[in-house]
Simulated assay, not measured.
Amino acid sequence: MKHCLVVDDSSVIRKVARRILEDMSFTISEAEDGQQALRVCQDSMPDAILLDWNMPVMDGLEFLGKLRLLEGGREPKVVFCTTENDVGHIARAIRAGANEYIMKPFDREIVEAKFHEVGLI
């Protein structure tokens, strides 16, 4: 079973994502910010990361840069999931190593489509 780390400071978003991803046969870990997410990745590198941009302590972009430097950190497929929708943000995310980008609010159909595009399902 594939493992997905859901990183978002909103417990509601984490809960919604968990339900969708568990229905897609993923095991789920959660983190409230990038710093917690890095600790999870250092303990056990996930197959996928659903990542918020704006979070306290360490934002998604900073986390992504640090993730990609870890041993095995280039392996997880990272899907940014955020309200930041301008082309500049999307370009920065892709340059930083994101594999895909989805907008909040999201639904199962969108998550499935993006995870399929990056080869996770």
Rank of each mutant, 00 (worst) to 15 (best):
V79I: 06
D8W: 01
E71Y: 04
R92D: 13
G73R: 03
G72V: 01
P46M: 01
F106N: 13
L61N: 08
M58Y: 09
K114L: 03
D8L: 00
M45W: 05
R108Y: 12
G60T: 01
T82R: 03
E22A: 12
I94M: 14
N99M: 10
R74V: 08
S10H: 11
H89E: 04
S25Y: 09
F115L: 07
A91E: 10
K15V: 03
L67Y: 04
I13P: 10
T82C: 02
L69M: 14
G72H: 09
L67E: 00
D8I: 00
V6F: 01
F115K: 08
L64G: 06
I94G: 09
T83H: 10
D23N: 15
L51T: 03
C81P: 00
V7G: 02
E75C: 07
K77H: 08
Q35D: 13
V16Y: 06
L21F: 01
E32K: 13
C4Y: 00
S11D: 15
I20R: 05
I49L: 00
R92W: 01
F80N: 06
M103D: 12
Q42E: 15
S44C: 07
L120Q: 03
F26P: 03
D52S: 04
E32C: 10
V16N: 06
H3F: 05
L67W: 01
Q42N: 12
D59M: 01
Y101S: 11
N99R: 12
I110M: 15
L5C: 06
E100P: 05
R92E: 12
M103R: 14
D47K: 04
E117R: 15
A37T: 08
